[in-house]
Simulated assay, not measured.
Amino acid sequence: MRTMRTGRAGRASGGGPGTGRRAVRARVRALAAAVACAALLTGCPGAGDGDGGGEQNGRSPFTGESVADASAPVLAVKIDNVAAARPQTGLERADIVYVEQVESGLTRLLAVYSSDLPPTVGPVRSARESDIELLRQFGEPALAYSGAQSKLVPVLEASPLHLVPPGEAPGAYSRSAERSAPHNMYLDPRAALREAPDGVSGASDIGFRFGAAPQGGRADTEEAVRFPAVRYAFTWSAEHDRWLVSIDGREATTTDGGRLGAPTVVVQRVEIRDSRFSDRGGSVSPYSETVGSGEATVLRGGRAYEARWSRPSAESGTEFTTPDGDPMTFAEGQVWVVLAPR
Rank of each mutant, 00 (worst) to 15 (best):
R218Q: 15
P263T: 10
R209F: 03
D248L: 09
A224N: 12
F210S: 03
V266H: 02
F210E: 00
R273H: 06
A212C: 00
A262F: 07
P214Y: 07
G258Y: 06
G211E: 06
G216I: 14
G261V: 03
T221A: 12
G257T: 00
T253L: 11
A262L: 01
R231Q: 15
E251P: 09
P228Y: 08
F227Y: 15
D220Y: 09
T264Q: 02
R218F: 11
F234R: 01
A233R: 13
F210W: 04
V266S: 04
A262S: 11
V270C: 06
F227V: 11
R218I: 14
V267M: 03
T235Y: 04
R250D: 07
A262M: 08
D220Q: 15
V270E: 05
A252V: 03
V270A: 09
T264G: 05
A262H: 04
A252E: 12
T235C: 10
R209I: 02
W236Y: 13
V225T: 06
P263M: 08
F210Q: 05
T254N: 11
A229P: 08
A213R: 08
I247Q: 14
F234N: 09
E222P: 00
I247H: 08
G211A: 08
T264S: 12
Q215E: 15
G261S: 06
F234M: 08
E222I: 09
R242W: 10
A212D: 07
P214K: 09
A212F: 00
T221F: 06
V230I: 14
T264I: 02
E251K: 14
R231Y: 03
T264H: 03
V270Y: 02
R242N: 10
A238V: 09
A213N: 06
L244E: 09
P228H: 11
E271Y: 04
R226C: 07
S246G: 11
V270I: 10
L260C: 02
V225E: 02
V225W: 01
I272D: 00
G257D: 01
R226S: 15
D256T: 06
A224S: 14
L260G: 00
E239G: 15
H240S: 14
E239K: 13
G258K: 12
R231G: 12
W243F: 04
H240N: 13
T235P: 04
E251T: 15
